[in-house]
Computed example of a mutant assay.
Amino acid sequence: MQLPAISLPKVEFPFDIPVLWHPVVDHFVIALPVVILLLELVNLVLRKKAISGMSFFLILFTVFAAIGAYFTGLVDGSEAYPTLNDAAKEALAAHKNLGTYLMLASGVLLLFKLISMLTDKSIIRVIYIFILIVFVAGIFEQGEEGGELVYKHGLNVAQVKVLDDELFDVQEELDETIEELEEMKASVETEKEENIETNTTQTEAETAVETTPVETEVKKEVETLQVEGMPEEMVQPEIATH
């Protein structure tokens, strides 16, 4: 089920949070709620205040761990975000959203634990146990999503980043090669057209040269025929006058 998007105000710290601390803190956020749930289930039978007190302090520690996981996650996510594809960015946004809910839920869990310790009402204890179970289920879901971000999308994995950089370089070289091929193709087409025009001009010139002697010869033959066909001038005999 997709949870409604939620965002919290940005908090500025007087120090820089190191990168890659998120996986370290996450181990506590995942392990502690499981231990707390086991303690509470055992305490349903034993009813020991010592176990309840231990559970309370573990929940308090879980709250701090959840806050730490949230802010270290923001740092690691911001570091990896520019290198992710669209699917990974969408998965990271969902992971952050669920992490925000879990951080707030840890505070609610602590509140109900405190109320259940101060009162003996069974309904409060039932609500607290229910919230704890839902919280543990959410933690497992968050852990699975985090694993997918690492193993499927390569979030903050150095070797994957190296391969992505190499792939980017290869893609860039391929694009440049394609552009060069397109330019060469255009150049060949232009040269081909110029050769065709040159050959056409030469052919027309040769045809003109070959046609000129023929026309001259035909013209001479026509003139000869005209001369031969003309009648000779009649020579009148001289008449003696004496």
Rank of each mutant, 00 (worst) to 15 (best):
E210N: 13
V63T: 12
L181M: 12
A137K: 04
E221P: 00
E197D: 14
I124V: 12
A66H: 13
L74N: 10
K49G: 03
H95Y: 09
F57D: 02
G107H: 03
K121A: 14
E189N: 00
G229Y: 05
P14Q: 06
E215K: 09
E183M: 15
H27R: 12
M54R: 05
E180N: 14
E194Q: 05
Q226G: 08
I30H: 13
R125G: 10
A88D: 02
E191G: 08
L20R: 14
I30M: 15
K219H: 13
Q226H: 10
I139G: 07
E193D: 09
M54F: 10
V108I: 13
M1D: 07
E228L: 15
V214R: 02
V188S: 04
V160H: 12
K152N: 08
G147N: 15
M1V: 09
A240N: 01
E221A: 03
F15I: 07
E79Q: 03
Q2R: 05
E166R: 05
R47M: 08
V75T: 13
K220N: 06
P14C: 13
W21K: 04
A91Y: 00
G138C: 01
L20G: 05
Q142T: 02
K96R: 15
I178Y: 06
K96H: 11
P82M: 14
T83C: 01
I129N: 09
M54E: 04
A87F: 10
N97Y: 06
S7W: 04
P82Q: 09
Y101G: 12
L37T: 01
V108K: 11
I131W: 07
L181D: 14
F15M: 05
E194R: 08
E173T: 05
E141V: 04
P33H: 01
E179W: 05
V209G: 09
V218A: 01
G229A: 11
G53T: 06
E141Y: 06
Y128C: 12
E90F: 11
E176R: 15
E238T: 01
N97T: 07
I36T: 10
E191C: 03
L118V: 06
V29W: 02
V188G: 01
L181N: 13
Y128I: 02
G77D: 11
V42R: 12
Q2M: 01
E194C: 03
A93C: 00
D165C: 02
V160M: 11
I131F: 08
L84P: 00
K161G: 14
D76Y: 07
T198F: 06
E141S: 10
V126H: 15
T100D: 05
A158V: 09
P33T: 01
T211G: 00
I115W: 10
E173R: 13
G77A: 15
V63E: 11
E183I: 08
P23H: 03
E210I: 13
T201D: 06
R125E: 15
K113Q: 15
T72K: 10
D16K: 12
K113V: 04
L44F: 10
E210D: 14
L111A: 15
V35N: 08
E221H: 04
L44H: 12
